[in-house]
């Protein structure tokens, strides 16, 4: 909560800095158009320095098209690699961390079945954030839900509250961690929408590995690819009845 307030305070100044930086990055990108065309330019223009706070003008989200014939396990593998997961040596399978999993769904009545990746849904009204006693579970102003691992006391109330089973508890001492995702025994963790990559102007790892089946972008920007797709083709949220307004949307469910 404190973080949000600080962010609000600094938002005005950082937005000015941000627009200046975007202008400079934009100019550089425009100059290099012929050298490195495409997505890369857009991404560089959105990079954010560490000193710059996340802006509430942005709401990052994902749109998963389940109708596309994609091997979703590639997303799982990319996630595991990015965050250095699956490195437990003692934990049982039901104790191992999974940020993203492939869920197979079958309609008992019709026999129709499909698969889809499920990760933290980055809810606007996140139950995990509401129940966290210390404020370790938090929502960034740009909509990304994450855990402050210096503040998490390991009570696991957030895991009890999450309707998506999106969180895991670190059951043992871990080694071989990746630089961007420090993980500690006794803390809760979950998909952080690859916040390190997003802040660097890149797409989350699962998006990159999805062969275009997951689109990442700013839900607040009506002209972003994700907003356009949602406007044209619609999308659904898992357990929309709970009215948590997740940032992850699905097509074909």
């Amino acid at each position: 909560m404190t973080i949000n307030i600080e962010n609000e305070k600094q938002q005005d100044t950082t937005e000015i800095e941000s627009s200046r930086r975007n202008f400079i990055f934009g100019s550089v990108a425009a100059a290099g158009l012929s050298v490195a065309p495409g997505v890369m330019l857009y991404q560089t223009a959105n990079a954010r320095s560490l000193s710059e706070k996340a802006s509430s003008k942005v709401r990052w989200g994902m749109l998963v098209d389940t109708s596309k014939q994609v091997d979703w396990n590639k997303c799982v593998e990319a996630c595991n690699k990015e965050h250095g997961l699956n490195n437990e040596t003692h934990s049982r399978d039901d104790q191992k961390t999974q940020y993203i999993r492939v869920v197979d769904v079958t309609n008992k009545g019709t026999g129709y079945s499909m698969s889809l990746p499920v990760m933290c849904q980055h809810c606007e009204q996140a139950p995990c954030v509401d129940v966290c006693p210390t404020g370790a579970s938090m929502t960034r102003p740009d909509g990304i839900v994450l855990v402050d691992r210096h503040r998490c006391i390991g009570c696991r109330y957030c895991m009890m509250a999450c309707p998506y089973k999106a969180r895991s508890f670190v059951h043992e001492v871990l080694s071989d961690q990746t630089e961007n995702t420090p993980r500690g025994k006794g803390c809760v963790e979950s998909c952080n929408m690859c916040v390190n990559r997003v802040d660097n102007g890149q797409d989350p790892a699962c998006v990159e590995a999805s062969d275009g089946a997951i689109v990442f972008g700013d839900l607040n920007d009506p002209n972003s690819a994700i907003s356009t797709l949602l406007k044209e083709h619609g999308g659904k949220q898992i357990r929309a009845d709970l009215k948590l307004n997740p940032g992850v949307h699905y097509q074909g469910i």
Binding site: M1, V129, D130, V131, C132, P133, T134, G135, R151, C152, I153, G154, C155, R156, Y157, F169, V170, K185, G186, C187, V188
Partner: peptide
């Protein structure tokens, strides 16, 4: 039973007043 009982001081100083635990 906490994952980090050594952080009791965090629980006693950092509060989220929306939380029933708090």
């Amino acid at each position: 039973d906490l994952g980090r009982p050594d952080r009791l001081i965090v629980a006693m100083t950092k509060f989220n007043f929306v939380s029933i635990f708090t």
